[in-house]
Each structure stands twice: as structure tokens, then as C-alpha cells.
Design a protein around this nucleic acid. Structure first.
Length: 279
DNA sequence: ACAACCTCCTGGGGGC
DNA sequence: TGCCCCCAGGAGGTTG
């Protein structure tokens, strides 16, 4: 379940192993992940130097000195590992090692993804904004363009449950099921509330809750449920701070609230909320 | 044009 | 004990 905080943690782990280094060899072990790899994928990577590792929403962007940028999405179960020569190997099943980059430093970068919901693309850096995966993304929750005003604009466009709206990457980029549930709980907003019924004060509270939950989750190295680990194998620990996610039938943790967390299904996805303090 | 479903995939957990 | 079914979920694609 890599959402923004997990992808940011992966980026921070990969950056020191990749930035400034050259990709001396690239290998893919199958022709596709969720989508086919682009033409001449390995050849276009080999011999390039990594200028910078960036992140946009849940996408990892590796800027190369060839003028192209490698776009990677971890899907549900994608993991990048940095492997030192003779060093420990990750605990992932090597049958699902799909992409292997040998760096000029001797380190290897391995992309492992059992479910293959992840995908990669390679596009001209100057046209990154026009890429089909990135073009429609909304503002970064920690960026200046995000806030109550941007939420208000997006919420006015269509009436739907706020839970569904926040999962829409055009509304705010990088939120997934976990952090949407947590942010709604912090803001005291019921996940089924229609977007148009949220007033200015609550919008401000919601924007603040989104920023705080994402900030704290990044500081905690993300959340590790089953699949996720950072590039060095370290586990996140924000899962210990979940107030609602995965806590059905447990007590609400909000001070002074004696509610019990419930689970409901919205558009096929679990929503966790406290019926006592979320309205 | 846009919103609601469908689909991709595997490992793990629950139930029988 | 073992097996089977179902669930988890991001986002593009398809359908309506």
C-alpha cells in the first residue's frame, strides 16, 4: 500500500545510492509489469547518469542525464531495494525481481513486485508534465497549491462522498485509502458526506488534517502493513499511530470520545470511521 | 464530458 | 491438517 509517505521514504532511501551514479547495466526479467515496458527500455537506461531522484504523488521520478526521466509506480506491492556486493539480500521472493539496475558504485537497485500492479515509463524530461500518468494529477498535499481553496474548487465540480473525492488523484495527489481514512477522522468528517455539504471551516480543518497526517507519516517512515519496506529494508511505523484504519470494533482514540470504530464499504473499498465523532 | 464499474495480480488469512 | 476462497488495493481502461 505505498501511498505518498511510503513513496517519499523509498525516494529518500534510493537517492544516496543513485544520485550521481551511472547505470552501467539494466535488466528486465519480463516484458511487462502492469503495462509493457517502453521500447528499448534497458538500452535507454544503460550508460546514463542519475541527476536527481524526485517524487510526484505516488510516482518516483529518476531524472537521467540523457534528457529522459524514468517514471516508476509501486502499485500495491512494488519494492525497491539497494543491494551492496556481498551484503544482505532483501526478504523478497527473487522470482518477482523484475528490474535490476547495476550502478557504477557497485550497488544494485532491484525492483520486486509480486502483484505487478506497478509500472514504469521512460519519457523526455521536458515533456514530463504531459505524460499520461502525470498530466491530470492535482496538487501535492504539502505544496503551496493545496489547501481549503483548492479543495473547495474541486469539491464544487461534482457531488460525491468525500472519501471518493479524496482518493481521486486530480483532487489531491498521493492520498490512498489509509491516509484518507485517517485524515477524515482527524477532521471529524464522516466519509460518506457529500463534498458540497462541507463548509469553509470544515474544509480548512480537512486541509490541515491531510497535511498533518502526511507530514507525520513521512516522519515515521511510512506505514508497514504487509508488503511495504524502505529501500534499505527498514519498516515504517506509522501503522502504530492509526486512529481508525484497520481498527473496526475497537475504541475511538480521540480524547473524550467513547465511540467504536466501524468499517463500511464505499465503491468497493473499506472505509474506517468513528460514527460518534465524524459527521 | 464525466462518473461509476472493471481489471490487472499474488500472498496471506480465515473458514470449513 | 489442508485446501479453497476471498480479500487487499492504484489507477488506467471501459462502459454507461
Amino acid at each position: 500500500m505505498p501511498e505518498l509517505p511510503e513513496v517519499e521514504t523509498v525516494r529518500r532511501g534510493l537517492a544516496p545510492a543513485m544520485e550521481g551514479a551511472q547505470i552501467v547495466a539494466a535488466r528486465i526479467n519480463r516484458p511487462d509489469l502492469r503495462f509493457a515496458f517502453p521500447a528499448r527500455f534497458c538500452a535507454r537506461l544503460e550508460g546514463t547518469k542519475v541527476l536527481a531522484l524526485r517524487r510526484r504523488a505516488k510516482f518516483l521520478l529518476t531524472e537521467l542525464d540523457s534528457g529522459e526521466t524514468l517514471i516508476a509506480h509501486l502499485g500495491m506491492s512494488g519494492r525497491f531495494s539497494v543491494i551492496a556486493p556481498g551484503g544482505p539480500k532483501p526478504d523478497t521472493n527473487p522470482a518477482h525481481d523484475h528490474v535490476i539496475l547495476a550502478m557504477s558504485t557497485g550497488l544494485r537497485i532491484v525492483y520486486n513486485d509480486p502483484r505487478r500492479f506497478g509500472f514504469m515509463d521512460l519519457v523526455a524530461t521536458h515533456a514530463l508534465d504531459k505524460n499520461r500518468f502525470l498530466a491530470a494529477l492535482g496538487p501535492e498535499p504539502l505544496g503551496n497549491a493545496f489547501g481549503a481553496p483548492s479543495l473547495a474548487r474541486q469539491f464544487a465540480r461534482s457531488q460525491r462522498p468525500v472519501k471518493a473525492a479524496l482518493l481521486d488523484q486530480r483532487v489531491v495527489a498521493g492520498m490512498g485509502n489509509i491516509y484518507v481514512c485517517e485524515a477524515l477522522h482527524r477532521a471529524g468528517i464522516h466519509p460518506a458526506v457529500k463534498t458540497g455539504r462541507i463548509g469553509a471551516v470544515r474544509l480548512e480543518r480537512l486541509a490541515g488534517a491531510i497535511r498533518s497526517v502526511i507530514t507525520e507519516a513521512i516522519e515515521a517512515g511510512g506505514s508497514t502493513l504487509r508488503d511495504y519496506a524502505a529501500a534499505d529494508g527498514a519498516l515504517g511505523y506509522f501503522q502504530h499511530r492509526f486512529a481508525v484504519y484497520g481498527r473496526a470494533n475497537e475504541a475511538c482514540l480521540r480524547p473524550g470520545c467513547d465511540g467504536v470504530i466501524r468499517r463500511m464499504v464505499q465503491s468497493g473499498r473499506s472505509s474506517f470511521y468513528c460514527p460518534h465523532c465524524q459527521h
